[in-house]
Structure formats: C-alpha cells, structure tokens
C-alpha cells in the first residue's frame, strides 16, 4: 500500500495519472463497486457489513492515492476499525430478523427505487461530464510540509470554529446514545423466591425448564430436546432463539443417526459375535 501511495506522490499534478494508478483504480474500483452492490444485495446484515468494510478499505487506498494520507489512515482506523465493528456489535445484538427477507412488501417500491437510483447516477455522471474540469493541480505544493501538518494548520486556524463545534457534537452524541440505550427500571426486579412462588401459584412448570440438547449427540443451546416420541420440544430452547427461528431441528437426523449407530453397533457386535464364534 505504501508503495502505491509513494507512487501517487510523484505524479499528483498531472492531468493524467500514471499507469500504475490507473491499473490500481480500475482493479480496486471494480472491487469497490462490487462490494457496494453486495452491501445492498446481501441477505444477511453481517455479510452486508463485511462487504461494506471491504469497500471502505478500498476507499482508504484511494484516499492515499489521492494524497490524503491522514484521511486514508483515519478511514481505516475509524471507519473500518471502529464504526464497522460497532455495526457488527449491533447486528449481533439485534440479531437476524424477518426484515432480512429481500422480498419487497411495498408495491412498486423496488422498481421506483431502481429507476430513481439509476436516473440519479446518470444525472450525476452527466453533470460531472459537463463540468469544466480541465486540470488537476495536484497536492504536491499543499503537501510539501507534510499532509498531517497541512491539515493541522488548517483545522486549528481556518476551521477552528467548526472543529470546536464538532467536538461539542461528539460529546452530545455520546450522551445521546447513553440516554437512548439506558433503560430505567420502573419496577423492582423479582427475587428468586418471588419467581418460585409465582410458578407454584400458576401451577405449571414447577421444576426448572427442560434443558436443550440431545444428550447422546448434541448439547448445543439451539437444538431442541427430544420428547419420548422423538419429536423436538420447543420448550427446551431459549425464547430469543425461538423468536428468531434459529432452532436447529435434528429430530429426524437424530433418529437417522441413531439407526445408523445401531446398525453400526450391530455390525460390530455381529462381528464380535463372529469373532467369538470363531474364537470358540
């Protein structure tokens, strides 16, 4: 990456770029577009987040290629590192829901959205094509004293007011997030004794709920325990997983496995029998 960046430094002022940068642009640009498309087309939010992270890293490379060294690093650290991880946390917190289905529910929404997006892209492209962009001055002069130093000089002189306001905004955002996610208890939490008494009063599930898992083969929490007739009991799985529909049904598999096991053990036993007979 640093090689690419140093290459860009040498040739920032030209109207056309070096072949290396052109190659880099076409290859990574294609990947970035694919990543963006995957972001909006992937069914699972986790996949979308990963695609987006990839796109962002490519954008970081482009920043470096354009002489924005500080921004390139910040992009990697803040965006890809912090923000995307925050996204992933929330995805895990919220979990997979029915909203992830790509089936459109609003009539005509998808067509309209595609039309608008496409039209907008065409218009922007036409606008850029029409704009009188004759020459790229390059950042050679601006970055002469170092990119970070140049930025710092601007931030603390020309943009100091905006910088201070941004600081206030960050504080506010932090406090806002805390306020939004903090839940005030409105009633006292039930003690274990009270919960036990309530269970007795209601008269169901006096003992603890049955544990998940099939003892012989699976003890994962997302696998329902089997009832005596071999059917899975949803009661054994925790509610969150039930709500998300993330229960793995292994009843038929378990029975099949059991049959196979019996067969195998029978074979082994039979062989053992034969061996015993042979021994006799």
């Amino acid at each position: 990456m640093s090689a690419l960046a140093s290459h860009a430094v040498t040739d920032l002022a030209a109207y056309t770029t070096s072949t290396g940068e052109a190659f880099q642009f076409w290859v990574l640009g294609t990947v970035a577009v694919i990543g963006a498309l995957c972001t909006i087309l992937m069914k699972k939010a986790v996949h979308s987040a990963l695609c987006l992270a990839g796109t962002m890293i490519i954008l970081a490379v482009f920043y470096l290629a354009n002489g924005a060294y500080f921004l390139g690093i910040v992009q990697v650290v803040v965006y890809t590192g912090a923000i995307m991880m925050l996204f992933l946390f929330v995805v895990m917190l919220v979990g997979v829901t029915a909203a992830d289905s790509l089936k459109e529910t609003i009539k005509g929404q998808r067509w309209l959205a595609a039309l608008c997006g496409l039209g907008f892209a065409v218009l922007l492209t036409a606008g850029i094509g029409n704009a009188a962009i004759t020459e790229f001055n390059g950042l050679g002069a601006a970055n002469a004293g170092g990119n970070v130093e140049g930025l710092a000089a601007l931030i603390f002189t020309k943009y100091v007011f905006a910088f201070e306001i941004t600081g206030a905004l960050l504080i506010t955002a932090a406090v806002g997030a805390m306020v939004l996610t903090h839940r005030e208890r409105t009633e006292r939490a039930l003690t274990q004794r009270e919960m036990a008494e309530r269970r007795v009063r209601e008269g169901k599930h006096l003992p603890p709920l049955p544990a998940p898992g099939v003892y012989a083969r699976h003890n994962a929490v997302d696998i329902a325990g089997l009832l005596p007739d071999g059917t899975p009991s949803e009661l054994t799985v925790m509610r969150t997983l039930r709500d998300r529909g993330q229960i793995r049904d292994v009843s038929s598999e378990a029975l099949k496995d059991l049959a196979a096991l019996e067969q195998r053990s029978a074979e082994r036993l039979g062989r053992d029998d034969r061996e015993e007979e042979a021994a006799k």
């Binding site: 309209l112 608008c116 907008f120």
Partner: peptide, 11 residues
Amino acid sequence: VSMLGGTAVLV
C-alpha cells in the same frame, strides 16, 4: 423514494 426522485428532478 419521492425525496430522491425530487432531488433527481432538481439536478
């Protein structure tokens, strides 16, 4: 959608 459509019209 209507916002984006409106923006497109403006552009």
